[in-house]
Design a protein around this nucleic acid. Structure first.
Lengths: 225, 225
DNA sequence: ATTGGAGTCGACCAGGGTGGTCAAGTTGTG
DNA sequence: CACAACTTGACCACCCTGGTCGACTCCAAT
């Protein structure tokens, strides 16, 4: 009988890695994520990975058959991480723009604090064509992109905006503002370990910006038809 | 007598490049800018540069003594380009936030249309520590950074904002909005030659956003003390 | 005590890319 | 013709690559 589902051997080999104690697994995974995030698939170096992880060269190819397979494992891992630790937590039923975007910002920041390398790596593999992945993985990537898009744009209620402004434009302005704040915050905190930072003061500042946005773009209470 | 000002030989060699007809100079320059922009100093390849420029390997080292000198030439060229074609054109006396930021956006877009590679390259060398440049060049880079910072933040009149909002926060919201628009536009136009694009419709859209920002954040006319 | 398999290491391999050189050849000009 | 400026790409020594593999350690089962 012919195997229809491919890669019996590969599965056996990757298992070795998954049997490792979590702490060691994590060290290797983080080292590899960081390397691929910093250099992309082609220019990432397996030598630097094993050096950063503190293991012998041989071990990497004992756990993974090849650089390519390691990369695919990391993509799969990252997709699952982003899905379960970030997107799945967003309340897609929240219709208020600011509430929704605030949730996205907050949950993303929390997930990023939990594993920053995953997000840096995702920025690479979401754009990169270098690696060419098996169709089934490429499909999952597209799913994730669409899921993210949906959470950002679908089911948003723009009826509460001031009537004298184009609601789509207002929506974009709000989005750019929140993105800008977030981006600038991350740039300011670059180099520090996100997990160790007390974000409360930054969130307070953030809510100050949100208050201004609401005051500016939302219909004033009790002024309606 | 001792030469106090260094590099007599280098000057003679670079002269060869500067004597070239402009069109050829430009082809080589653009190829090199693109290569360094895409890969950074360390991983840029002189082989790919000569290939892209359509010249023999030897010529590159006939015009420039080394990869390092080529890089320094490009940094110098880019600094001058950005200074003269972008920053110098900004009217630093314009006190109105939106007017000022609009100018910055518009002039940057025009300069980018004139030579896109310079801006992509500048994004690299403004961050990169790889190359280590001679102090005198590093100083010029810092000057440029400061000049840019000044044009963005200095001499701005925030007194026309609504009195019930923190003017610094409003300023940042406006900045992020304009940046967001610009960034998204550039992403949408990626791959096309900026110089061949008719920007009028985009500017119209942009002014639509500005109108909303003014309506939202500026003190309403005739409501004062 | 012995065996054997899982786990671990790093020296080693062939291959490819690196920045830079240079002998050879092509031009253009006096 | 001669001579200098210009142009080429094969070539160099070197470095790093992904991947292999023989040697070694450890430990549980015999």
């Amino acid at each position: 009988m012919v195997k229809l589902c491919g890669n019996g051997e590969v599965a056996i080999i990757v298992e070795r890695f998954e049997k490792l104690e979590d702490s060691k697994q994590s060290i290797i995974r983080q080292a590899a994520l960081a390397e691929f995030a910093a250099h992309g698939y082609a220019k990432a170096s397996t030598n630097r990975i094993v050096q950063a992880a503190g293991i012998g060269k041989g071990m990497l190819f004992y756990y993974f058959t090849s650089k390519q397979e390691l990369y695919e494992y990391l993509v799969k891992y990252s997709l699952e991480f982003i899905q379960s630790r970030y997107l799945a937590r967003v309340d897609a039923a929240e219709p208020d723009v600011i509430e929704r975007l605030t949730q996205l910002a907050r949950l993303k920041m929390e997930a990023q604090a939990e594993n920053e390398e995953v997000f840096k790596f995702s920025a690479v593999f979401l754009l990169e064509g270098d690696a060419q992945l098996p169709v089934e993985l490429a499909a999952k990537i597209n799913e994730l992109k669409k899921a993210g898009y949906r959470l950002m744009y679908e089911g948003i209620d723009k009826s509460r905006f001031r009537k004298d402004m184009d609601p789509d434009k207002v929506f974009h302005l709000i989005r750019w503002s929140i993105d800008g704040f977030q981006q600038e915050l991350l740039a300011k905190l670059a180099g520090q370990k996100l997990a160790e930072i007390d974000f409360e003061p930054y969130w307070d500042e953030f809510y100050g910006y949100l208050a201004i946005l609401k005051m500016s773009f939302y219909e004033t209470e009790g002024e309606s038809s």
